[in-house]
């Protein structure tokens, strides 16, 4: 589904070149939930952005559904959820979700059906007529996820979507995200800097390290797909979390 071969990205800055990504190889299968974790500057967000054609790799090849990222973007292969909800304050929640659909030229009845469906999916049914400021931060981020789901992209790319929320809300949203993933069968790329979040959500955890940004370890999760929140207290969970922490430490020993 997503195939990265030798992907490198170097930014030219006034202080010389910055190697944001170096020789990244990764393949993500359909239906995977892949988390990217690492300290800041490790290129996890940059890699997500290259998949979404928001950045262009300077070397290597990257294919999404057998297409270049740019073609994939045009064929609506992915929905992107940013760190902040980015809802327009002058549009209601329903009309915010409608925004990408309007841009993509969906008909009005189709738009309305899709809005109703995704609002249901993120448990915001009945909030369509509200303005963003009338909703809590967690609800706003759910609305932004609904917006990314509205046009039926197969891939959902999420850049620290719950980073700005408190832990209790985050737990609830993590649980909801897993439910949503089970229901829709999307392929999800998820950037985070929380170890428990990464372990709880993912089928695969990609540990990255900085200078140059690269993958230091890929950990396959042995947890079942069905995951109640209590799974975080099981030895299996703690073992995987430990492995992720080891991977992060390994990455740091370079500098």
């Amino acid at each position: 589904m997503i195939e990265a071969k030798g992907v490198s990205l170097t930014f030219q800055t006034a202080d010389g070149p910055v190697h944001a990504l170096k020789d990244v190889n990764l393949s993500i299968n359909k239906g995977d939930f892949v988390s990217f974790i690492g300290p800041s500057g490790c290129g996890k967000t940059t890699f997500l952005r290259t998949m979404a054609a928001l950045e262009r790799p300077t070397a290597g090849t990257l294919s999404v559904n057998g297409m270049t990222p740019d073609q994939a973007r045009k064929s609506r292969a992915y929905g992107y959820v940013f760190q902040a909800p980015g809802l327009y304050p002058w549009r209601t929640i329903a009309r915010n979700i409608s925004l990408p659909l309007e841009i993509m030229g969906f008909s009005k009845p189709d738009r309305e059906a899709r809005i109703a469906r995704v609002l249901e999916l993120v448990e915001l049914a009945g909030f369509g007529g509200k303005y963003p400021w009338q909703l809590s931060g967690g609800m706003q981020q759910r609305a932004s996820i609904a917006r990314a789901l509205a046009f039926d992209a197969e891939i959902l790319l999420m850049d620290e979507p719950f980073g700005a929320l408190d832990e209790i809300v985050r737990d609830r949203l993590n649980e909801a995200l897993l439910e949503l993933w089970a229901k829709t069968g999307k392929t999800i790329g998820f950037v985070t800097h929380s170890i428990p979040e990464a372990v709880y959500l993912s089928t695969r955890i990609v540990v990255m390290s900085p200078r140059p940004g690269r993958i230091s370890r890929v950990i396959e999760s042995t947890l079942p797909r069905e995951r109640p929140l209590e799974i975080r207290d099981t030895p299996e969970f703690i073992r995987i979390a430990h492995e992720v922490r080891e991977g992060l430490r390994e990455g740091h020993s370079y500098d």
């Binding site: 979404a52 928001l54 973007r73 045009k74 992107y80 940013f82 980015g86 925004l99 990408p100 841009i103």
Partner: peptide
């Protein structure tokens, strides 16, 4: 930047 990236991710034209 984020809002403009968002527009780009939806393949919005400059006019849109």
């Amino acid at each position: 930047r984020m809002q403009l990236d968002q527009m780009h991710s939806w393949s919005a034209s400059r006019a849109q």
